[in-house]
Each structure stands twice: as structure tokens, then as C-alpha cells.
């Protein structure tokens, strides 16, 4: 019998530790599928962040380095410069990338470092218990903004994809969401495209993935998907912000 659906080779057998309804699992799968599709498992090195995805190295069947909080783009830079023919990606959350690691991501992008960044934006610090993130929405209640994010005292959320698009270094930047199957398919396309950009040596690529955190948002998984759609997408519009014209399909 023909097998039409199974575990991607690039994912390990390890059971995920993520909370029920968390979309990390979906995004892990999309990354692994893109690696399988492109046939690059043997040349891929991943860099794990600090945050909920700290154990990402357990879930991928790939060589991995685990980076300090926010430093994944610098670590990926070191790897890629030693092994320019390999495929190197980081997987980072919003606290990791857009707060403590802002310098690293901006400069890796500005250098046009030939790495790919999968940036998970769920508008909150997940692992540490739901504190305010640089991407938390105005008015959003978190454990460190218990009265709602007050823009008069803590300022505004950062739109990472748009900000990095102002730089000349990046080759591909897009924002996608995983709140329903249609958007998941689009996210898969975007991730694959970002990977192809690196494989073709076109420059820095980043996909910002709007993601849920039902546990820390205090919502059911289904409500969380709806909250993402109704609150995050208006603030963080989806789309391709930057794309090289010459990128063509590669791989199997």
C-alpha cells in the first residue's frame, strides 16, 4: 500500500513537550518537510534558541547547536562561515529574537548572512511563564503587564519583518500565520522559499510565523487560533516584504 502521509525524515521520534494547542509542533513539521522536500537533511545544521523551543534539537533529526538567549544568528553566522556549502537555520521566539537578541538579528540581516531564520511570534514569553514580549499587543495582559500593555509607559510592539525589510542585506522576508490549514499551506510555501533563497546563495532569509500560546494567553486552543486571527494579523499584516526575483525552485 502506498504511504501518503508520515513523519518527515528530518523530525525525530521524540515526543514534543509543547503545551496542547501550541503551534510550535506545526511549524517544526513545516521546517522538517521543507528539509525533506529539498533533500538537504545531510547538509543542514540547526541552531536552537532559549525559550520554549530550547529543546528543538531533540525534535529534529539533524545536527544542531544550542545557542545562548538571543545569540542564535551569531552562532549561525559562525557555522555558515566555516561551512559555506551547508544549510544553516535558526529557530527563535520573539523574546529571544526581538528583545535580548535584537542586535544579533539586525546585524546578521544587515550583513546579508546566508542563513535562514524561522521567527516564531506569539506575542508573549512562553517558557518563563507568560511575561510581556517586545511583540505583545497594546493592551495585552501578561504576567508583567497585568493591567494590559500600556503604550505610554512601555511603548509599542516591534514589527520585526517590516523593520528588517528596511535593510539592504536581507534577500527574503515574509510573515505568515498558522491559524488555519489554508494559512499553514502558505506558511509551508514561505519556509520553503526562504530555504531556497539560502541554498541559491542569494542572502539572508527570514520567515516570521504568527503563532499561538494558549497556555499563557489563558485561552483554549480553538480560542487562541481565533485571537491570533482577530488581534495579531491586524497589527502584524501577512505577506512577502522582500523577495529576490531570481529565486527559482530547487531540490527534489
Amino acid at each position: 500500500m502506498e504511504q501518503v502521509f508520515g513523519r518527515p525524515k528530518a523530525l525525530s521520534e521524540k515526543r514534543l513537550h509543547y503545551c496542547p494547542g501550541c503551534t510550535h509542533g506545526i511549524i517544526h513539521r513545516l521546517v522538517a518537510e521543507a528539509i525533506d522536500d529539498l533533500g538537504i537533511q545531510d547538509k543542514t545544521i540547526g541552531v536552537a534558541p532559549v525559550g520554549c523551543a530550547v529543546l528543538a534539537y531533540d525534535y529534529f533529526n539533524l545536527d544542531f547547536q544550542q545557542a545562548a538567549h538571543g545569540r542564535a544568528p551569531a552562532v549561525a553566522t559562525g557555522i555558515k562561515r566555516v561551512l559555506p556549502d551547508r544549510f544553516v537555520f535558526t529557530y527563535q521566539g520573539d523574546g529571544d529574537l526581538a528583545s535580548i537578541g535584537m542586535a544579533e538579528i539586525v546585524h546578521a540581516a544587515a550583513r546579508g548572512e546566508k542563513i535562514t531564520v524561522i521567527f516564531i511570534n506569539n506575542a508573549i514569553y512562553g517558557m518563563t511563564g507568560g511575561q510581556m514580549a517586545p511583540t505583545s499587543l497594546p493592551g495585552q495582559k501578561t504576567t508583567t503587564s497585568p493591567y494590559g500593555r500600556d503604550i505610554n509607559t512601555v511603548g509599542y510592539p516591534i514589527r520585526v519583518a517590516e523593520m528588517l525589510t528596511t535593510l539592504d542585506g536581507p534577500a527574503y522576508i515574509s510573515r505568515v500565520s498558522v491559524h488555519d490549514p489554508k494559512h499553514i499551506n502558505k506558511a509551508k510555501e514561505a519556509i520553503r522559499k526562504a530555504f531556497e533563497v539560502q541554498i541559491q546563495g542569494l542572502g539572508f532569509s527570514l520567515v516570521e510565523v504568527l503563532s499561538t500560546c494558549p497556555t499563557n494567553w489563558g485561552l483554549s486552543p480553538r480560542e487562541a487560533l481565533k485571537w491570533l486571527e482577530e488581534n495579531m494579523i491586524p497589527y502584524y499584516p501577512l505577506g512577502v516584504f522582500k523577495s529576490p526575483e531570481e529565486v527559482s525552485k530547487v531540490g527534489a
Binding site: 545557542a67 545562548a68 552562532v75 549561525a76 553566522t77 559562525g78 557555522i79 555558515k80 566555516v82
Partner: peptide
């Protein structure tokens, strides 16, 4: 951290 990556 670049050294960490490159050494690794």
C-alpha cells in the same frame, strides 16, 4: 557566539 558556532 560566532566563535562558538565556528568552533562547533
Amino acid at each position: 557566539n560566532m566563535v562558538y558556532g565556528a568552533g562547533g
